[in-house]
Design a protein around this nucleic acid. Structure first.
Lengths: 224, 224
DNA sequence: ACACAATCGGATAGGGCATTCCACTTGGTT
DNA sequence: AACCAAGTGGAATGCCCTATCCGATTGTGT
């Protein structure tokens, strides 16, 4: 709509003082790391600590947690949209589809915060919502092509993607070390279900030991 | 092993005083309700309040959260095991398989606490672990039959069930009202992937509006 | 070099939670 | 009826979190 900046670099009315600008960058960098490891539930205090700034500095720059999340995940969300657009334009629609699904789920596997961002709807974070919307639209077009190609089942629905993302986030959040393996297995099964031929290869299942060991204490319910 | 009670009624060394016994029952009943609605993260205080007893009474009876969880979910877990055994003994292995998977995932949909219990490994809660183990063994036998029947894919692994349970819990925990619909859809897709023919019917996908509306504020990150 | 507004960060208020403590009450036995 | 160990509930403690306040510091335009 507006011709204004997409990158959101100069939205604020006034430019920050140079030291403040540097602190802002340090906060975002620290938050990126903390969110990646701990998810969006990480405390503001721990992020300030990791950034080496005072609590007040963090809150001055990002009065709500949402603003920090939006700043941190704007770039990953943009890359996600770019991936969806690239997939839409691939020659083989099915290959584009499969590749995109695997890519997004793989990103979730290495970034817990991003996994959560992808499965949430923050009405307030317009930047994120717009990019999610654009990715969704590109993906929807891709679906049409893949169906016409005869490789994607006719009854696949665009909503199956967010459902898969939520499912994948659930697996990743529950099981610890075996998360990536379990996630790959889930995605492989789902792709089988989506494909017209049903002959997709399936990644190996994680062993029961790894799986159950990972389940211990993943959610902090405090077993003792 | 021991000839002692399976129901765990009289484990404690001494019998409780009658009023204490009544309070114990009230606590379990209240916890059952609270856990069903809010999941295992519910605070001890809120359970005591719901039970109409003091905090201290709750902690005296159940010194750790785990003991309370074990007491509350012993019966549901037993029913789960019974369902697995019944499925194993069904005439059509595939029907038993499909029915069991749908049943368990349906239980998750109506009971958030149970959904979490099914996706955790509490080393300390022997009662629960044993029933999980027994259910898992019955299920594994069922898998063998269903494969010999030619209805279940050869590369299905027993670990695919816990993975599905975690995935389903993720969907249910993320999306609010549309949870049951999204869960049914996920389970339908997975059953398709599991079945040799791939011709399983698919429940309808929830509409995008319901799905995205449900995603708002499901996780308490506090949008403002 | 100076002045001052922007910025900083520790301190602090306020709330929720798990867990313990303790003075009081009560069921059950004699 | 009387006794008392078992049981009770609420207050107290300690931890972690969000969010705000305020005196001290510092970048920057002149």
């Amino acid at each position: 709509m507006e011709p204004s900046s997409e990158s959101g670099m100069c939205k604020r009315a006034r430019r920050l003082r140079s030291d403040a600008e540097q602190n802002r960058d340090r906060i975002i960098e620290a938050a990126r790391k903390v969110y990646r490891r701990e998810g969006l539930g990480a405390s503001m205090a721990s992020i300030a600590r990791a950034a080496g700034v005072g609590i007040a500095t963090l809150f001055r720059r990002f009065p709500t947690r949402m603003e920090l999340i939006a700043a941190v995940f704007e770039e990953p969300m943009r890359r996600n949209r770019d991936a969806a657009v690239a997939a839409r334009d691939e020659e083989s629609a099915w290959e584009g589809f499969r590749g995109y699904v695997e890519t997004v789920c793989g990103l979730q596997a290495v970034n817990r915060g991003f996994a959560e961002v992808l499965t949430m709807n923050y009405g307030t974070a317009k930047v994120l919502e717009r990019q999610r919307q654009e990715a969704f639209e590109a993906f929807t077009e891709l679906i049409g092509r893949a169906k016409r190609e005869g490789r994607l089942r006719e009854d696949f629905s665009p909503e199956d993607l967010p459902i898969l993302l939520m499912a994948n986030a659930g697996v990743l959040g529950t099981v610890g070390d075996a998360g990536p393996a379990a996630s790959k297995r889930l995605v492989g099964q789902m792709l089988r279900a989506f494909s017209e031929s049903g002959s997709e290869p399936l990644p190996p299942a994680p062993g029961p030991k790894e799986l159950f060991r990972g389940m211990v204490r993943q959610r902090r319910i405090g077993g003792g």
